[in-house]
Design a protein around this nucleic acid. Structure first.
Length: 479
RNA sequence: GGUCCCAUCGUCUAGUGGUUAGGACGCGGCCCUCUCAAGGCUGCAACACGAGUUCAAAUCUCGUUGGGAUCACCA
């Protein structure tokens, strides 16, 4: 049987990390077996529907390179791929399930949390619904007369149900624990419990990958497959991605979504790589993988059972690895977006080159380069540095020596400037640092900077460098 | 509460009866060095607890504790 998996998100407005990871595992199971990855939109709950959410799903998957073989936009042989467009299909199967004895029509009023105790007709939990005894004929005539109804699953089995899960192994659940949930709502749309089974079967899904919160209801789905005479899929329940030991990552907590992370300067490839390892490992000590590499080595047997806490620190490290692995040109293209106010005046290529090994997220660029546009106000004590053997006096001396030399220099490259200043130090019996350190402070006004004195000089260009050195010297003299 | 599931460094994890319990992030130290990074080396740090089974248990069994999930006309 061909391996076919589906990612079936609800368009509720936001692609969170756990969702994306589930999609990844689904994609990888399909692709590592040469199968198909299907995208299906589960929009059966109009109350939660968010406009534009489907686009976010499309864009996110595309951005990380998880292309789907069938889906709402690309079509396929098993469409439509949006559940609201499959309404008739569910209705047809729901009625059929009633005929087959796997469900019944229920006319009870909708359950209301507040009035639950008062309304005897809706105490379904653990007690049998009175409607399950209504004959099909009577039910049909009530429906025909316009009475609102739902289709509710009928569970007659006793004893325990056993099913196999790829990550959790064999799981046993008592049929008594299952409740007779609504399959087809009064608005005519199916619930997840039903739409999923019908769609997964009709779309010939071989592996169902989903959060482990579905484990306890899986026997209910199997009962539906059984009633229709269908073969259940292979189940792959995955543990949740956590924010901390107690809480899942969630939108409600304001936890970072894929989009949020990208906005902060995380690379999609790095995010994908990181989440792949949150609950899965290749069995050796490699950690950096492209999606294409994952497709080759993924194995669902190496999926973990226990929840994993999302650790932004490690993601940040990994993102740094991805940034450093970029070619200088690719990095420059990404970094350029952060150079808006300085792009005209400085050597941005040189800037990118010094930045690349020093940042872990693109968002860090801003604070790294703030001194380039303008030297911040700084205290002269910045020139005091024990290790460099510098203080205000040596700084004055250094800048006085440096200024004329640089003014006459026309080869404005890091190598040349560095050699020039080094020989200047040597000629005056000073340590390299006694020249270079004050120059760097003079050019940046900051204790730490990306790159050293000569690298900054190259970034700023000759005119700006000379100007800043003069300004600094004035400041030192006025002290 | 019933039921189901889970449990190795702070975090992600390797480990399927015999290992000095390995790696990665983070953290500390050292080297390199024009500050800061990057890079190299190195250190600290874990089998939740208790009983079994066994010559031998992080690995198997049972229990305890802790945590999570589920019990919707949400998915």
């Amino acid at each position: 049987m061909r391996t076919r998996t589906r990612f079936a998100p609800s368009p509720t407005g936001y692609m969170h990390i756990g969702n994306l990871r589930t999609a990844l595992y689904e994609y990888l199971i399909a692709k590592s077996n040469g199968g198909d990855f299907i995208l299906r939109i589960e929009d059966t709950d109009q109350k939660r529907y968010v406009d534009g959410a489907t686009d976010i799903i499309f864009q996110t998957l595309k951005r990380v390179g998880m292309n789907w073989d069938e889906g709402p936009d690309v079509g396929g042989n098993y469409g439509p791929y949006i559940q609201s467009e499959r309404k008739n299909i569910y209705a047809e199967y729901a009625h059929k399930l009633v005929e087959l004895g796997g469900a019944y029509y229920c006319f009870c009023a909708q359950k209301d949390e507040e009035n639950l105790e008062e309304d005897e007709t809706v105490k379904h939990l653990k007690i049998k619904d009175p409607c399950r005894n209504i004959s099909i004929e009577e039910a049909k005539s009530r429906i025909a007369s316009g009475e609102p109804y739902v289709v509710r699953q009928k569970i007659n089995k006793k004893g325990t149900s056993t099913f196999h899960d790829v990550v959790y192994g064999d799981i046993e659940i008592d049929y008594d624990e299952l409740d007779e949930g609504v399959l087809l709502k009064s608005d005519g749309l199916p619930t997840y419990n039903f739409a999923n089974v019908v769609d997964d079967h009709l779309m010939q899904i071989s592996h169902v990958v989903r959060g482990n919160e579905y484990i306890s209801s899986t026997p209910k789905y199997n009962l539906i497959y059984e009633a229709f005479g269908w073969t259940p899929p292979i189940y792959v329940h995955v543990p949740p991605v956590m924010k901390d030991a107690q809480h899942k990552l969630s939108k409600r907590n304001g936890d970072a979504s894929f989009q949020d992370l990208v906005a902060k300067g995380y690379l999609p490839e790095a995010i994908l790589n990181y989440i792949a390892l949150l609950g899965w490992n290749p069995g050796d000590e490699r950690e950096i993988f492209s999606l294409a590499e994952l497709e080759k080595i993924f194995s669902s047997e190496r999926l973990n059972k226990s929840p994993a806490i999302f650790d932004i620190t490690k993601l940040t490290w990994m993102n740094g690895c991805y940034i450093r692995n970029l070619t200088a040109d690719d990095f420059h293209q990404l970094a350029k977006k952060y150079y808006t106010d300085i792009a005209e005046t400085v050597n941005t290529k040189a800037l990118s080159a010094t930045l690349q090994p020093r940042i872990e997220t693109l968002g860090q660029i801003e604070e790294q380069i703030d001194f380039i546009k303008k030297v911040p106000e700084y205290d002269l004590t910045l020139y005091d540095n024990k290790k460099m053997k510098t203080d205000i006096q040596t700084a004055q001396k250094s800048l006085k020596l440096v200024l004329p030399v640089l003014s006459e220099t026309n080869e404005w490259t890091n190598e040349h400037l560095f050699e020039t200043l080094k020989s200047l130090a040597e000629a005056n019996g000073m340590k390299n640092g006694q020249i270079l350190y004050p120059v760097r402070i003079a050019l940046s006004g900051k204790e730490t900077t990306p790159g050293g004195a000569t690298e900054i000089a190259v970034i700023l260009g000759k005119n700006e460098t000379i100007k800043r050195l003069n300004d600094a010297l004035k400041k030192l003299n006025n002290e």
